[in-house]
């Protein structure tokens, strides 16, 4: 029997090790798995590389991990989101490394990681500071930059509903990076609002098929 349900947040994040690359979903705080990130902080894990669109909102979730010095490096498109004071303090103190990646490139690099693609050429950042030092190629008269895939040791995601197979549905713009990050990690952990009986999610509305999901927890 397939049952990806776990009872506690602590069980959900068990096994994520020091130095791990963790894909942290959300666009600002919307779709952010705040409770899973808090539980990860409570494990005492450190030296993390976090991949996220932003760099934490307020004091909880990703912001809390950064505030407590658990994140060695953040890979993101836009660190200054709503109330980014934890990141700003760490950045000013020189305690966190920052890699800025254009948002679409960040997304596509994870897709490549999920899809077994070793790299891709993209126009974004060609001829700019962020494209500097990267391999380029002219394709049909336009300049492209080579980008490499990103995979996570773990992905922490948030969805609306799940069944025990790990099929997921989302709500409105809280979908954002969730389906993508769920596909791009060795261990995908999802917090959901509600777990429903197998067969009761409309298969036409499942945005993440359970094959990508390892653990689900209600939070």
């Amino acid at each position: 029997m397939i049952d990806k349900r776990v009872r506690t947040l602590a069980e959900a994040v068990a096994g994520i090790k020091d130095g791990a690359t963790v894909l942290c979903s959300g666009f600002g705080a919307v779709g952010e798995p705040v409770e899973l990130l808090n539980a990860l902080r409570d494990t005492g894990v450190r030296d993390l590389v976090c991949v996220a669109n932003n760099a934490g909102t307020g004091d909880e979730g990703l912001a809390g991990l950064i505030r407590d010095g658990r994140v060695r490096k953040i890979v993101c498109s836009f660190p200054r989101t709503t109330d980014p004071h934890c990141f700003e303090a760490a950045y000013k103190a020189g305690k966190i490394e920052l890699e800025i990646v254009p948002q679409g490139t960040l997304s596509e690099r994870m897709r490549a990681g999920a899809a077994g693609i070793g790299g891709f050429f993209v126009k974004t950042s060609a001829g700019t500071k962020l494209g500097r030092g990267k391999e380029t190629r002219e394709i049909d008269g336009e300049l492209y930059v080579l980008e490499k895939p990103i995979r996570g040791d773990a992905a922490l995601c948030r969805a609306d509903r799940a069944d025990r197979w790990g099929n997921l549905t989302y709500r409105k713009s809280a979908r954002n990076f969730n389906p993508l990050m769920a596909m791009a990690a060795d261990l995908t952990v999802v917090q959901v609002r509600e777990i429903v009986d197998l067969g009761s999610l409309d298969p036409e509305c499942v945005a993440t098929p359970g094959i990508f999901v390892d653990r689900i927890v209600v939070a």
Partner: peptide
């Protein structure tokens, strides 16, 4: 700190 978001895309 710098931030690019979706501007380049």
């Amino acid at each position: 700190p710098p931030g690019v978001g979706g501007a380049m895309d």
